Simulated scan of single mutants.
Amino acid sequence: MPISDYYKNIRAKIGTDLIFMPSVAAIIKNDQNEILFQYIKGEEQWSLPAGAIELGEPPAKAVIREVFEETGLLVKPLHLIGIFGGEDFRFTYSNKDQVEYNIFVFNCKIISGKLTAIDGESSDLKFFNVYSKPELALPYPEVLFHNLKVSDAYFQWNDDWLKLNN
């Protein structure tokens, strides 16, 4: 589903103004260690399988739902590998809706399914080698696409804040 009733109601009230959007994204690898990316219809950009967290929905359940809707794959989230947000994760859709994502990124394992866009949001789904991945709509750090261990979760830090508070 491209946009939920919840976000439709918000947009009806505020138009295209900037909103926070709690979201999830998945790093999904095949047996050749390639990463799955989706090409979004109407946006002309590649992304990780991702989407908004719905009201009352835990992030891990949201990533399972979003991945299935966008890819036809049932996945199991193995662990959280990064949390991102801030100005670098602002995006303006082709319809001029502005969002600032707060994204929980999960490493996920394919359990079952056939690679196909269920909700019609993806116009292409393709696995890429980490060294030949497409340019993405959001600036995820390169380290995220390599084999991170659970203890290596990546977090954004404001170095200026750390210097002032140490």
Results as ranks from 00 to 15, higher is better:
residue 123 S to R: 10
residue 117 A to T: 15
residue 140 Y to I: 00
residue 139 P to N: 02
residue 139 P to A: 03
residue 121 E to F: 09
residue 120 G to D: 08
residue 122 S to W: 09
residue 127 F to E: 07
residue 148 L to C: 14
residue 136 L to N: 02
residue 129 N to F: 04
residue 130 V to N: 04
residue 136 L to T: 12
residue 113 G to N: 11
residue 120 G to T: 10
residue 119 D to S: 14
residue 148 L to P: 12
residue 116 T to E: 15
residue 142 E to Y: 01
residue 148 L to F: 13
residue 117 A to F: 11
residue 151 S to M: 08
residue 144 L to W: 05
residue 133 K to N: 01
residue 119 D to F: 08
residue 138 L to Y: 03
residue 128 F to V: 04
residue 127 F to T: 06
residue 126 K to L: 04
residue 119 D to L: 08
residue 123 S to E: 15
residue 151 S to L: 12
residue 145 F to G: 08
residue 132 S to M: 01
residue 137 A to N: 08
residue 143 V to P: 05
residue 131 Y to H: 11
residue 122 S to C: 14
residue 147 N to Y: 04
residue 121 E to Y: 07
residue 124 D to V: 12
residue 129 N to T: 07
residue 133 K to C: 02
residue 128 F to E: 04
residue 141 P to F: 02
residue 142 E to P: 00
residue 135 E to I: 08
residue 127 F to S: 07
residue 129 N to V: 02
residue 141 P to C: 01
residue 128 F to G: 03
residue 126 K to M: 05
residue 138 L to P: 01
residue 147 N to P: 06
residue 132 S to D: 06
residue 146 H to L: 13
residue 115 L to I: 14
residue 115 L to Y: 10
residue 143 V to H: 05
residue 151 S to G: 04
residue 127 F to R: 06
residue 145 F to S: 10
residue 128 F to P: 03
residue 120 G to P: 07
residue 130 V to C: 02
residue 138 L to K: 02
residue 149 K to L: 15
residue 139 P to E: 01
residue 116 T to F: 12
residue 118 I to R: 13
residue 147 N to H: 12
residue 140 Y to H: 02
residue 144 L to D: 05
residue 127 F to V: 06
residue 141 P to E: 01
residue 114 K to A: 11
residue 125 L to N: 08
residue 149 K to S: 15
residue 132 S to V: 00
residue 134 P to G: 00
residue 144 L to M: 11
residue 132 S to E: 11
residue 140 Y to K: 01
residue 150 V to E: 15
residue 118 I to T: 10
residue 146 H to R: 14
residue 133 K to W: 03
residue 134 P to R: 00
residue 142 E to D: 10
residue 138 L to S: 01
residue 137 A to L: 08
residue 152 D to E: 15
residue 134 P to F: 00
residue 138 L to V: 03
residue 125 L to G: 06
residue 148 L to N: 14
residue 146 H to K: 15
residue 113 G to T: 12
residue 148 L to S: 14
residue 126 K to C: 04
residue 135 E to V: 07
residue 128 F to Q: 05
residue 116 T to A: 13
residue 134 P to N: 00
residue 116 T to V: 15
residue 128 F to D: 03
residue 132 S to P: 00
residue 129 N to G: 04
residue 135 E to F: 02
residue 140 Y to S: 00
residue 131 Y to G: 03
residue 120 G to K: 09
residue 128 F to K: 05
residue 137 A to I: 11
residue 133 K to Y: 03
residue 147 N to K: 14
residue 136 L to A: 02
residue 149 K to F: 10
residue 132 S to F: 04
residue 125 L to K: 06
residue 113 G to P: 09
residue 123 S to C: 09
residue 146 H to I: 12
residue 119 D to C: 13
residue 115 L to P: 06
residue 147 N to L: 10
residue 139 P to S: 03
residue 140 Y to W: 06
residue 115 L to S: 09
residue 140 Y to C: 00
